[in-house]
Simulated scan of single mutants.
Amino acid sequence: MTLSISLTVNGVRTDVAIDDPRVTLLDLLRERLHLTGTKKGCDRGQCGACTVLVDGRRINSCLALAVSHDGAEVLTIEGLASGDRLHPVQAAFIDNDGFQCGFCTPGQIMSAIGLIAEAETGDDPERIREAMSGNLCRCGAHVGIIEAVLDARNRLAEDERRTA
Protein backbone atom coordinates (compact mmCIF):
# COMPACT_ATOMS: atom_id res chain seq x y z
CA MET A 1 0.00 0.00 0.00
CA THR A 2 1.49 3.33 -1.07
CA LEU A 3 0.57 6.54 0.71
CA SER A 4 1.13 9.97 -0.78
CA ILE A 5 1.93 12.90 1.48
CA SER A 6 2.75 16.51 0.84
CA LEU A 7 5.21 18.49 2.96
CA THR A 8 6.66 21.94 2.64
CA VAL A 9 10.32 21.37 3.43
CA ASN A 10 12.53 24.43 3.77
CA GLY A 11 9.97 26.47 1.86
CA VAL A 12 9.56 24.02 -1.03
CA ARG A 13 6.44 21.92 -1.42
CA THR A 14 7.34 18.27 -1.82
CA ASP A 15 5.02 15.38 -2.69
CA VAL A 16 6.31 12.01 -1.56
CA ALA A 17 5.03 8.48 -2.06
CA ILE A 18 5.61 6.35 1.02
CA ASP A 19 5.56 2.57 0.70
CA ASP A 20 5.75 1.90 4.45
CA PRO A 21 3.58 3.91 6.87
CA ARG A 22 6.21 3.31 9.59
CA VAL A 23 8.79 5.58 7.90
CA THR A 24 9.91 8.26 10.31
CA LEU A 25 10.21 11.90 9.35
CA LEU A 26 13.96 11.59 10.04
CA ASP A 27 14.38 8.73 7.57
CA LEU A 28 12.26 10.51 4.98
CA LEU A 29 14.39 13.65 5.27
CA ARG A 30 17.73 11.82 5.17
CA GLU A 31 17.08 8.93 2.81
CA ARG A 32 14.42 10.19 0.42
CA LEU A 33 15.00 13.96 0.39
CA HIS A 34 18.80 13.75 0.93
CA LEU A 35 18.74 16.36 3.71
CA THR A 36 21.47 14.77 5.80
CA GLY A 37 22.08 17.71 8.14
CA THR A 38 19.46 16.24 10.46
CA LYS A 39 21.36 13.51 12.28
CA LYS A 40 20.34 10.05 13.43
CA GLY A 41 21.87 9.78 16.88
CA CYS A 42 20.12 7.48 19.30
CA ASP A 43 17.01 6.87 17.11
CA ARG A 44 14.99 6.82 20.35
CA GLY A 45 14.22 10.50 21.00
CA GLN A 46 16.79 10.83 23.76
CA CYS A 47 19.66 12.81 22.20
CA GLY A 48 18.03 15.58 20.12
CA ALA A 49 20.38 15.21 17.14
CA CYS A 50 17.34 14.81 14.89
CA THR A 51 15.55 17.99 16.02
CA VAL A 52 13.68 19.85 13.28
CA LEU A 53 10.90 22.42 13.35
CA VAL A 54 7.46 21.23 12.24
CA ASP A 55 4.92 24.01 11.89
CA GLY A 56 7.27 26.14 13.99
CA ARG A 57 7.60 23.68 16.88
CA ARG A 58 10.70 21.65 17.65
CA ILE A 59 10.31 17.89 17.50
CA ASN A 60 12.50 14.80 17.49
CA SER A 61 12.05 13.65 13.92
CA CYS A 62 13.15 10.10 14.79
CA LEU A 63 9.93 9.69 16.81
CA ALA A 64 7.59 11.25 14.25
CA LEU A 65 5.92 9.18 11.57
CA ALA A 66 6.17 10.98 8.25
CA VAL A 67 2.55 10.21 7.35
CA SER A 68 1.32 11.96 10.50
CA HIS A 69 2.78 15.23 9.21
CA ASP A 70 1.01 15.33 5.86
CA GLY A 71 0.56 19.00 4.96
CA ALA A 72 3.08 20.23 7.53
CA GLU A 73 5.80 22.81 7.11
CA VAL A 74 9.20 21.36 8.02
CA LEU A 75 12.34 23.41 8.58
CA THR A 76 15.72 21.67 8.72
CA ILE A 77 19.23 23.00 9.20
CA GLU A 78 19.61 23.20 5.41
CA GLY A 79 16.80 25.75 5.23
CA LEU A 80 18.30 28.33 7.59
CA ALA A 81 21.06 30.20 5.76
CA SER A 82 20.21 32.64 3.01
CA GLY A 83 22.95 32.16 0.46
CA ASP A 84 26.22 32.98 2.21
CA ARG A 85 24.40 34.76 5.06
CA LEU A 86 24.03 32.53 8.10
CA HIS A 87 20.93 32.54 10.26
CA PRO A 88 21.65 34.55 13.45
CA VAL A 89 21.54 31.37 15.54
CA GLN A 90 24.10 29.68 13.29
CA ALA A 91 26.37 32.74 13.53
CA ALA A 92 25.99 32.84 17.32
CA PHE A 93 27.00 29.18 17.60
CA ILE A 94 30.17 29.91 15.64
CA ASP A 95 30.99 33.09 17.55
CA ASN A 96 30.46 31.44 20.96
CA ASP A 97 32.15 28.09 20.26
CA GLY A 98 28.83 26.30 20.66
CA PHE A 99 30.18 23.09 19.20
CA GLN A 100 33.19 20.80 19.10
CA CYS A 101 32.78 17.71 16.92
CA GLY A 102 29.64 19.20 15.34
CA PHE A 103 27.51 16.05 15.23
CA CYS A 104 24.83 17.44 17.55
CA THR A 105 25.09 21.01 16.24
CA PRO A 106 22.24 20.90 13.67
CA GLY A 107 19.82 19.60 16.30
CA GLN A 108 21.12 22.07 18.87
CA ILE A 109 20.63 24.98 16.44
CA MET A 110 17.13 23.89 15.45
CA SER A 111 16.19 23.43 19.09
CA ALA A 112 17.61 26.87 19.93
CA ILE A 113 15.52 28.47 17.19
CA GLY A 114 12.39 26.78 18.55
CA LEU A 115 13.30 27.72 22.11
CA ILE A 116 13.83 31.38 21.23
CA ALA A 117 10.49 31.44 19.38
CA GLU A 118 8.77 29.96 22.45
CA ALA A 119 10.05 32.99 24.42
CA GLU A 120 9.71 31.28 27.78
CA THR A 121 13.27 31.39 29.09
CA GLY A 122 14.16 35.07 28.89
CA ASP A 123 17.86 35.60 29.49
CA ASP A 124 18.14 33.09 32.33
CA PRO A 125 20.96 30.61 31.55
CA GLU A 126 19.48 27.98 33.88
CA ARG A 127 16.09 28.10 32.16
CA ILE A 128 17.82 27.87 28.77
CA ARG A 129 19.89 24.91 29.97
CA GLU A 130 16.71 23.17 31.15
CA ALA A 131 14.84 23.94 27.91
CA MET A 132 17.78 22.62 25.86
CA SER A 133 18.21 19.51 28.03
CA GLY A 134 16.69 17.30 25.32
CA ASN A 135 19.74 18.01 23.15
CA LEU A 136 22.86 16.22 24.31
CA CYS A 137 26.45 17.13 23.47
CA ARG A 138 28.89 14.34 24.17
CA CYS A 139 31.83 16.74 23.76
CA GLY A 140 30.67 18.93 26.63
CA ALA A 141 30.17 22.17 24.68
CA HIS A 142 27.11 23.07 26.76
CA VAL A 143 28.64 26.29 28.14
CA GLY A 144 29.21 27.59 24.59
CA ILE A 145 25.76 26.40 23.55
CA ILE A 146 24.06 28.36 26.36
CA GLU A 147 26.12 31.45 25.49
CA ALA A 148 25.20 31.00 21.81
CA VAL A 149 21.48 30.82 22.64
CA LEU A 150 21.71 33.98 24.75
CA ASP A 151 23.67 35.76 22.00
CA ALA A 152 21.27 34.58 19.28
CA ARG A 153 18.27 35.71 21.32
CA ASN A 154 19.80 39.19 21.54
CA ARG A 155 20.68 39.24 17.83
CA LEU A 156 17.17 38.25 16.81
CA ALA A 157 15.63 40.84 19.16
CA GLU A 158 17.90 43.52 17.68
CA ASP A 159 16.98 42.47 14.12
CA GLU A 160 13.31 42.67 15.10
CA ARG A 161 13.76 46.16 16.57
CA ARG A 162 15.49 47.36 13.38
CA THR A 163 12.71 46.09 11.12
CA ALA A 164 9.84 47.29 13.30
Rank of each mutant, 00 (worst) to 15 (best):
L65D: 06
A148H: 10
H87F: 11
R153H: 05
V89L: 02
A141V: 01
L7T: 08
E130M: 06
E158P: 06
Q46K: 00
D19Y: 00
R127Y: 07
A141H: 10
G41D: 11
S4K: 11
G114K: 14
H87G: 05
I116P: 04
E78G: 13
I113C: 13
M1P: 09
F103W: 10
L150K: 15
L25H: 06
I94A: 14
R32D: 10
S68A: 14
T2V: 02
Q90S: 11
K40W: 07
L156Y: 08
G48F: 11
A66L: 02
S68W: 15
T51V: 15
F99T: 10
G79Y: 13
N60V: 06
I116T: 12
L7R: 03
A148V: 00
R127I: 13
G11R: 07
G45M: 03
G140D: 02
A17C: 09
R13E: 15
R162G: 03
C62R: 12
L65C: 08
T38E: 10
E158D: 15
S133D: 00
V16F: 09
G107F: 07
V9Q: 04
E78H: 02
A91H: 10
A131K: 13
V74S: 02
L3E: 07
D15R: 06
S133K: 11
N135V: 12
E31Q: 14
A81V: 04
E73R: 11
G41Y: 05
R127K: 15
Q90Y: 15
D84M: 00
E126M: 13
L7K: 02
T121H: 05
A81H: 06
L115C: 08
L136H: 09
L26Q: 11
Q90E: 07
M110T: 05
E118Y: 01
L28G: 03
A157H: 01
S82T: 02
G122I: 04
C137E: 01
C42T: 06
D15F: 00
D84R: 08
C50G: 03
A91D: 14
L136E: 05
C47L: 09
D20V: 08
V54T: 03
L136W: 12
E158C: 06
D15M: 11
A141E: 09
L156S: 00
I94V: 15
D70G: 01
C47V: 03
Q90I: 05
